[in-house]
Every structure is written in C-alpha cells, then in structure tokens.
C-alpha cells in the first residue's frame, strides 16, 4: 500500500509516495536526498537522526513517514543561511564540539530543542538533556561547552 505524504520540509511544501512502513528518516534521506540526518542505530538510542517535527525534537528513525503527513519538519540543512552558520553550529565549531561529525546533526538539532525549552541551561541540565544523543568521539566535554556557548550566543 502506498500513501501520499505531504509536509513542510525546511520551509518548503513537499510530497512523496511512500509505503506505510517507510520511516521519516528514509523519506528525508533516500527520497529527498537530505543526507545530513543520519542513522546510527536501530533502537532509538543514538540520536543521529534527530530532526524537528512541529517544533519539537524527534528521532526520525522512530517516526513513520506517514505520521509526518501535514507536519512541519526541519533538518540540519535548514540552519545555516547564505553560508553563515547558525549560532549553535558556530558554537560547535568554535568549541571543537565535533570530531567525526556523524552524531553532530542530531546533537545540534537536539541542542536547539533544549535551548527552546531552557534558554540558559547549566552543565548538568545539558548533560541530562543529551540522554538521547550518543557521541563516541568527544567524551561530550566539548559538546557540553558548545551547547552552553551556543545558548549564550542565541540569548544575545
């Protein structure tokens, strides 16, 4: 059975034919070829696939494409404008908050949802929030610094 899914993806109205079993991340990556959203696991732990759906961070590997019908979805590709990094992206660069880069899009999207909920998060709050995002490179030290700096930049 195929369905038509229509959504606003990074500000543009798009639609696609999908199977019922198609995942949102498959739609984003394989159909729309936005490959910044990654798949790192199959049990919803790693958070490499985090995107925003209707303003909230979600794991796009655990959402059916069909569930996103009518939704507003934004991915890592939506953040930088005219080659200028978003303040959170810039903070990750300035603080060496990424190494291999694979978990990074999910980290940044997750961090932005944190800041939306808590504009001035402390270290413990950041570490707690990152429960759904795994990084194997950085030991999180610089990710935590990056998010604190990104939040500060977004406040000012």
């Amino acid at each position: 059975m195929t369905l038509t899914v229509t959504m606003t993806l990074n500000g543009e109205s798009v639609s696609a034919e999908v199977e019922g079993r198609t995942l949102l991340v498959q739609l984003i990556r394989d159909h729309f070829r936005l490959t910044g959203t990654h798949v790192g696991c199959d049990t919803s732990q790693c958070g490499a696939c985090v995107v925003h759906m209707n303003g909230q961070s979600v794991k796009s590997c655990t959402v059916l494409a069909a569930q996103a019908d009518g939704a507003e979805v934004s991915t890592i590709e939506s953040l930088a404008e005219n080659g200028e990094l978003h303040p959170m992206q810039q903070a990750f660069k300035d603080n060496h908050g990424l190494q291999c880069g694979f978990c990074t899009p999910g980290m940044v999207m997750s961090a932005l949802d944190l800041v939306a909920n808590n504009p001035d998060p402390g270290e413990a709050e950041i570490r707690d929030w990152l429960e759904g995002n795994l990084c194997r490179c950085t030991g999180y030290h610089n990710i935590v610094k990056s998010i604190a700096a990104g939040a500060q930049a977004m406040r000012s």
């Binding site: 919803s44 985090v50 961070s57 979600v58 794991k59 949802d113 759904g132």
Partner: peptide, 9 residues
C-alpha cells in the same frame, strides 16, 4: 522516561 525525544513522542 527515556530521553527528550522519546518524551516528545
């Protein structure tokens, strides 16, 4: 429960 993304869904 879970993590923020799980709690959002």
């Amino acid at each position: 429960i879970g993590d923020p993304q799980v709690r959002n869904r």
